[in-house]
Every structure is written in C-alpha cells, then in structure tokens.
C-alpha cells in the first residue's frame, strides 16, 4: 500500500478510542491545524449553510448555465415529487432533486461548496441533508458527518485522486459518493465499520466512470452524474446498515480507482476529446453554444 493516511488507520483509531470516524477526523484536524475542535465545527457549519442555500436556490429553477445547456431540471423533479408521483419514492426523489439543484447552481455560476470538487458538489449535500431530515439530525450531527466525509476524501486524495483530469469522473463523483455513503451511515447511527463498507460499495459501482464533458464544460453529463452518485451513496448506506459488507476493503477499492484512473486514456480525462464529448450531438452543441463569437 502507498504511504499516507488509510481508511483502516482511521477505522482502527475510531474503534480504539470509541469515537466515530467524524470525531477522529475532527480530533486529528484540530491537532494538525493547531485550533480547537469548536473552531473547526464553526467553520464546517459555514460550509453546511452554503450547501443548504445552494439546494434551496437550485430548486427554484431560476439559474441557467453559461452555455444554456443545463438548468431548471431540479425544479421539474421537485414538482413531480411534491405531486407524490415518483416511481422511486419520496426520499429517493428528494436526494435526486437536491443533487440536481446544487449541480445546476454550480453550472450557473452560483455559490457552492466544492465537495470534493465543484463538478461533484451536489452529491454530499443531497445525501446528508436528506438523511439528516429522515433521522431528525441537528446541525452538530451534520457537521460531524461532513468531517467523516472529509476524512475519507483526504485518504482518497492521498492514495488515488479527486481530480477528473487525473482519474476521470470516478475520482470526482465516485469519490463524492464514497464520502457521502460513509458519512450517511455514521449520521444514521451505524458503526464506523459498517460506514466503511458502505463507502466501498458506493465507490466500487462507479469505478471506471470517465470524464467526458460536452464542450469541456462542467454541465453535460456532470450535473446528472451528481444524481447517480447521490442515489448510489444512499443505497450503499442502506445496504451497509442492513449488514451487507463489501468483499473488497475500501482502502483497496481506492487504490484500484487510482490505478484505473492512470490506465484511462487522456481522451477520457476532462479533455473533451472522447466519450460523450465527441458524439455528433455534443459536437453540434459545442458549435451552437461556443462556436459563435470564438476569437
């Protein structure tokens, strides 16, 4: 295994000290940054507030992206949910609509929290705010869940990558889904061990996902892949809470993700030279939205 922090180290420390992963991460960070845990909680609370605002703004459907390709879809799904018509049920629709909402705000140059990146910013708020509502969590619990997610993200960044240019979309939305699944299980009261299984299951199913943005913009397919990441994280959390485990440990899934990223051709890593980005429709959209007025 490569050097740097690992999930199993976090897990062992959490179990030895009788703390959650989030509490262990908080403790480490306070020591590393030489500040109090209370200061860190306060700072994370500001992130949580921006996440909430971006959900609320996105659901209004008012913001459109710079190219005009995306915007307004969160509102459509939210309306269908409010009408009680969804096939997947209310919670699933709420998660999906919120993931769309935040990703649309991002595409429209609104204010978001990168988590871990701007392109994948819809996953964590969608999952955590919705699970938080379902279990009646307060802000302190949500903040702790964000530290859980951050701890997993730090490991992924050190052992693999959280950059689409280096690892494809699996490194962005895959990482976000992994972080969200782990955090959701802890938020719902599951053990750290179960939480880590959820993360492994969430990331495994997104391995190999390429980054092939139309016209090189964080719009198509990025916005909708945030939904995939969020819904996938929710289901992985439920599976783990039901006692389903991952046969491959999360640390090894993360290493595999990094290796897959390195093996991925450059054309599928944020260069817009392959995949969906070079479909006839994508090339036509690029021409329509960006061709006019090009210097």
């Amino acid at each position: 295994m490569a050097k740097g922090p690992t999930v199993v180290e976090l897990l062992t420390q959490a179990q030895v000290e009788g703390l959650s992963l989030g509490q262990i991460v908080l403790k480490h960070q306070a020591a590393q940054l030489e500040v109090t845990e209370q200061d860190l909680r306060q700072k994370m609370l500001a992130n949580l507030q921006v996440m909430r605002n971006s959900v609320a703004e996105g659901l209004t459907g008012k913001r459109r992206s710079m190219s005009g390709m995306v915007g307004g879809d969160a509102k459509l799904l939210e309306q269908r949910r409010q009408g009680g018509q969804t096939l997947g049920g209310d919670v699933l629709a709420r998660v999906a609509a919120r993931a769309l909402a935040v990703a649309e705000v991002n595409a429209g140059m609104g204010k978001i929290v990168a988590a871990p990146t701007a392109g994948s910013c819809g996953v964590l708020p969608a999952v955590l705010l919705t699970v938080g509502e379902e279990i009646g969590a307060d802000d302190a619990q949500l903040v702790e869940a964000l530290f859980t997610a951050a701890g997993i993200g730090i490991v992924i960044a050190a052992q693999a990558s959280i950059s689409g240019a280096q690892g494809g979309c699996q490194a962005e939305v895959g990482s976000a889904a992994c972080m969200a699944a782990v955090a959701a299980v802890e938020l719902a009261g599951g053990t750290a061990e179960l939480a880590v299984h959820a993360g492994a299951m969430a990331l495994k199913t997104l391995l190999g996902l390429v980054c092939d943005p139309v016209a090189g913009l964080v719009e198509v397919p990025c916005v909708k892949r945030n939904v995939t990441g969020a819904v996938n994280a929710l289901i992985a959390a439920d599976m783990a809470l039901a006692g389903i485990t991952s046969n491959i440990p999360l640390d090894e899934v993360i290493i595999a993700m990094g290796n897959i990223g390195r093996a991925m051709p450059c054309s599928l890593k944020e260069t817009a030279l392959g995949g969906l980005a070079v479909t006839p429709t994508a090339l036509r959209l690029k021409e329509v939205f960006l061709g006019a007025g090009q210097d």
């Binding site: 991460v25 992130n47 595409a107 997610a149």
Partner: peptide
C-alpha cells in the same frame, strides 16, 4: 490536506 481542502472551498462555480 485539511478537511477544508476536501469540503471546500466555498466558491462561485462551475
């Protein structure tokens, strides 16, 4: 990395 390199920054997209 700090937790706020992962959850953060607060920024204007995209």
């Amino acid at each position: 990395l700090s937790a706020f390199d992962i959850i953060g920054p607060i920024m204007i997209g995209p």
